[in-house]
Write a protein that binds this DNA or RNA. Structure first.
Length: 353
DNA sequence: ATTCCACAGGAATACTCGGATA
DNA sequence: TATCCGAGTATTCCTGTGGAAT
């Protein structure tokens, strides 16, 4: 146990710091659009930004700025990955009562509709997971609800025009907000601020901090890394120490991401990681699946079907843990070529379209 | 011009579970 | 209590893909 750490909380990913660095402009954009201070208007938004750029924190914080004359609701498409689950949670928020399973969606829709009396702002974070799993029915319903604003959040799509039904998109019709990656300076401030609150004074070397912010632009990785270093350190967090825990820290980060998913997701990821070590990158779906199957046998677990694992691979892609190039035909057949994401190649990843 | 690779990914189906209704 | 219904999860089934190899 490290005695460097006074309070661990500021080093946790879920911690919402009182002071919010680097996203003031984006915060203002939202506040101005909604006119929270004066006459308020409800607006739909789509917020895009790579992983670890503060989207979730920005919106969670934004929701807290509404007065009690509003209802606000935060959903994550990772957990609320069906219309049913989303509506259930929404209903729970509105009434405090839990419905449980076994009802009809149309019934819950009606119940929710009855309960939405105050202007309501609903954030659908990680919207890609919901769309992949259950289509856009929820968004269609929500955007047609009176007196309601919907804010979708994605780390993968700048716009939802393509994945949404035309009728859904036309009633959604969002304004767009993009979060760019933190500047090194902002990242440094964020980490330094958390270190100051969590650690003994003077325990974090400047060079250590610099190394982190120069290596990754994902602030979640940065925070995990800082915490890992703090937990390992005896007296000071040095640059060397930070380098030493680099790999472990990334594993910790992956673990925390995959914690929200199933053991099969984790097994699948580990399979890919090991295959890549053994045979190098660029594996095809087939090899990954058969190796995953083997691992299941070894562990005495029934493997999931190829079809299902195909979807789980897409999940890993959405999480930015793996990268896949799709072959839609050709001598390689129709497949995906898979490799782990090179997370610490800080620099050019701007040519996406 | 064909053939072929090797799955992607849509649709139908099976199975389980909780609530509702008679 | 029996039975039915719909939601969720996972499987089964199947068609389509398109350039390189023949």
């Amino acid at each position: 146990m490290s005695d460097l750490i006074d309070t661990r909380t500021p080093l946790e990913l879920s911690h919402l710091p009182a002071q919010f660095v680097g996203r003031e402009a984006e915060q203002d954009t939202l506040t101005d659009a909604f006119g929270v201070e004066g006459e308020s208007r409800l607006q739909n938004f789509h917020v895009y930004g790579p992983r670890g750029t503060g989207k979730t924190h920005l919106l969670q914080r934004f929701l807290t700025t509404f007065p009690p004359t509003f209802t606000t609701c935060y959903l994550s498409g990772i957990h609320q990955n069906t219309q049913y689950k989303s509506l259930e949670r929404l209903y729970h928020l509105l009434t405090g009562t839990t419905l449980g399973t076994g009802h009809h969606v149309a019934d819950i829709q009606r119940k929710v509709e009855e309960q939405v009396t105050l202007p309501t702002v609903i954030v659908v974070d990680e919207v890609d997971f919901l769309l992949l799993n259950d289509g856009d029915d929820l968004l269609y319903y929500l955007t047609r609800l009176e007196n309601t604003a919907v804010i979708t959040v994605s780390a993968n799509r700048r716009s939802l025009e393509e994945p949404l039904d035309e009728r859904t998109y036309s009633s959604f019709h969002p304004q767009h907000l993009t979060l760019n990656e933190y500047t090194a300076n902002a990242a440094r401030q964020i980490l330094a601020d958390r270190a100051r609150k969590a650690l003994q004074p003077q325990s974090l070397q400047r060079a250590a901090l610099t190394y982190i912010t120069a290596t990754t632009q994902n602030i979640s990785i940065g925070i995990t890394w800082l915490r890992e270093a703090a937990e390992t350190a005896d007296d000071r967090i040095t640059r060397d120490l930070v380098q030493n825990v680099e790999v472990t820290a990334y594993h910790e980060f992956v673990k925390s991401l995959l914690n929200e998913f199933t053991t099969h997701h984790r097994r699948l990821y580990n399979t890919i990681a090991r295959l890549e070590q053994e045979r190098g990158p660029l594996l095809t779906t087939g090899t990954v699946y058969s190796e995953y199957s083997k691992r299941c046998e070894t562990a005495g677990v029934a493997p999931l079907s190829e079809r299902r694992i195909s979807d789980f691979l897409t999940h890993l892609e959405l999480l930015d843990l793996i990268e896949a190039t799709y072959y839609r035909g050709g001598r390689k057949g129709k497949t995906r070529e898979i490799k782990l994401v090179d997370w610490n190649s800080r620099s050019d990843s701007e040519e996406t379209s």
